[in-house]
């Protein structure tokens, strides 16, 4: 078998193996394992557009930064209300979207986000 035939018949399987090797860590990295990781993924998806926090590399500055969250929001219920509907819990004219009321986050997801925010 000459070199041309080897490269012709082997390049397909080699590519498949290489792609599999590359995609394994990517796929596993896409699926957060722990509840805290899930909360972080949601916060990165929905909160970083306006808030700065650790790990947010595309962060906005429209809202206040997420620091010392447990000190600033000692009552979990307060944070839950704000995330669900800030127009009601904060002020009617706030820019913050009503993540719960408009269905961006369900109740379980709000709790995951809060758990993560309390680590900041």
């Amino acid at each position: 078998m000459n070199r041309w035939l080897v490269s012709k018949y082997l390049q397909g399987p080699v590519l498949v193996v290489l792609c599999s090797l590359i995609s394994i860590p990517v796929l596993s990295a896409d699926k957060p394992k722990t509840p805290l990781e899930q909360g972080k993924v949601l916060a990165l998806k929905l909160c970083q557009a306006c808030h700065e926090f650790k790990g947010a590399d595309q962060a906005g500055t429209v809202g206040p930064p997420f620091i010392q969250m447990s000190q600033r929001f000692p009552k979990r219920e307060r944070m839950r209300d704000i995330i669900y509907d800030p127009q009601k819990a904060l002020k009617p004219h706030t820019m913050m979207p009503p993540f719960g009321r408009h269905g961006f986050l369900d109740k379980k997801e709000i709790e995951l986000v809060i758990d993560y925010l309390y680590t900041l």
Binding site: Q48, A49, G60, T61, V62, Q87, M95, P97, H102, G103
Partner: peptide, 19 residues
């Protein structure tokens, strides 16, 4: 769904960063 008005970004938050 995000309930933004033009006003929010280019008035109230003008000069700030969004993403």
């Amino acid at each position: 769904p995000r309930a933004f008005a033009c006003y929010h970004c280019h008035w109230e938050a003008a000069g700030s960063k969004i993403r």
